[in-house]
Design a protein around this nucleic acid. Structure first.
Length: 276
DNA sequence: CGCACTGTTTAAGC
DNA sequence: TGCTTAAACAGTGC
């Protein structure tokens, strides 16, 4: 499901459903979702109020009273939705936060890849994966000079580096294919061989694509839904991902699909230039 | 039955 | 030591 635009959409839809509520009880139906201590997670959260929901790259940060934060990563298929404690548990509901107002928030995850961890607000960096994150794709720190210098140091292919999160965070498999198509850069291009003017175009396309995808409330390709149960709409605007075998919208060549860094990768072999 | 899947970590190999 | 690749997580759907 979720790359940065989808997580941001979840943040926006979840905020009005959850902020201001006070946790009465926590049900851990599949405790492995919690990477911190399970008993502490259940006990410490009782009586805490949800103050806000923030986001950093693909992580949701659920801010609670008394300086606590639940760091939540949806990985491939995690979803939040508002329910009632008495509603029968769905097969893939794994965590429930019961609130004092009689409602509840449920975490549902078909593949059980998602993780939550309770930390003290301000020490989010102790969560595996957060410390290595580079600047977010839509942040002011993601400048051309920073991006170009970072690519110059790397000898790997561009698709791998954009997926890695350490140079720039927030992109996933779908948006990487999209921005490389938009920038006319072949996914196997070697980072330090890409000329600066192309890097500038790529940076702009990353900004633009993320912005557009948030505007369209994300991309639903498998099962992604926001906290209201609604799909995204950006899937109708994808030009590469999911269109293997079809004609390239720019040059009419046939889009190809290969495997890069273990991920399916769709691109146009004619108009996406290979730098190596 | 085999393979692919929005993400990330960890183990294994060189 | 460090980089790269494969496997692992677990389930569904084609």
């Amino acid at each position: 499901m979720p790359e940065m635009p989808e997580v941001e959409t979840v943040r926006r839809t979840l905020t009005p459903l959850a902020v201001g509520k006070v946790i009465k009880k926590v049900d851990l139906w599949y405790p492995n979702i919690i990477s911190s201590d399970h008993r502490e997670f259940k006990n410490k959260l009782v009586g805490k109020k949800i103050l806000a929901i923030d986001r950093y790259a693909k992580f949701l940060l659920i801010r609670l009273s008394e300086d606590l934060t639940i760091v939540s990563h949806l990985r491939m298929e995690g979803k939040y939705y508002l329910s009632l404690p008495a509603t029968p548990k769905d097969k893939h509901d794994h965590v429930q936060f019961e609130f004092t107002d009689g409602t509840s928030l449920r975490y549902n995850d078909v593949r059980k890849f998602g993780r939550m961890q309770l930390v003290e607000t301000g020490s989010e960096k102790i969560v595996t994966g957060i410390a290595k994150l580079g600047p977010e794709a839509d942040s002011p720190e993601f400048t051309l000079d920073y991006f170009y210098a970072g690519l110059n140091k790397r000898h790997k292919n561009i698709k791998n580096v954009l997926l890695d999160q350490s140079l720039v965070s927030g992109l996933g498999n779908i948006y990487v294919d999209e921005v490389l198509w938009s920038s006319k850069i072949h996914p196997l291009s070697i980072c330090n061989k890409i000329p600066k003017d192309k890097v500038a175009i790529l940076r702009d396309e990353i900004n633009h694509t993320i912005e557009e995808a948030i505007k369209y409330k994300g991309t639903t390709v498998h099962t992604y839904l926001d906290a209201n149960g609604d799909t995204g709409h950006y899937q109708n605007r994808l030009k590469a991902y999911g269109h293997a075998g079809e004609k390239c919208r720019r040059c009419q060549s046939k889009l190809e699909k290969i495997k890069v860094s273990g991920r399916g990768t769709t691109f146009c072999p004619n108009c996406q230039v290979m730098y190596k």
